[in-house]
Simulated scan of single mutants.
Amino acid sequence: MSQPTLTRTDQVQKVLREGGRIEATGEGSLVRLIDRTGKEVPAWQAAMKTAQKRAQASS
């Protein structure tokens, strides 16, 4: 069963708070969301990039 795609920044932030991370894919400016177990979580690029900026701003 596939995971639903995360479309909102708050959904991505929840994964990050639970130990996930955002990492570069190596394909231009694309990033991917990885949960705490190491599995990729489908998410919109815009949601991930906004969550990443907010995390950087708060640290």
Rank of each mutant, 00 (worst) to 15 (best):
S59Y: 05
R8D: 14
A46S: 15
R32D: 12
V41G: 06
M1L: 15
M1H: 14
A57P: 03
Q11G: 15
R8F: 10
S2T: 15
A57M: 08
V41I: 14
S2R: 11
K53S: 14
K39W: 02
Q56M: 10
Q13L: 14
R54W: 04
T37N: 06
T9Y: 04
R21I: 02
G20Q: 06
P4E: 12
T25Q: 06
V31Y: 10
D10A: 12
P4S: 11
S29G: 11
Q56R: 09
A51W: 00
T5Y: 05
I34N: 03
A57L: 09
R54G: 04
E18I: 01
K14V: 10
L33E: 13
M1F: 15
I22L: 04
L6Q: 06
T25Y: 04
P4N: 11
K39Y: 09
A51H: 02
Q52P: 01
L33F: 07
M1G: 15
R32Q: 15
L30C: 11
R21A: 12
A55R: 06
P4L: 07
S58T: 12
R32S: 09
R54P: 03
S59D: 08
Q13I: 04
K14D: 15
R54A: 10
M1E: 15
R8W: 01
S2L: 12
A55L: 10
V31Q: 11
E40T: 11
A46F: 09
I22C: 02
P4M: 07
R17D: 15
Q13E: 15
G38L: 03
P42C: 08
M48F: 05
V41T: 09
A46W: 03
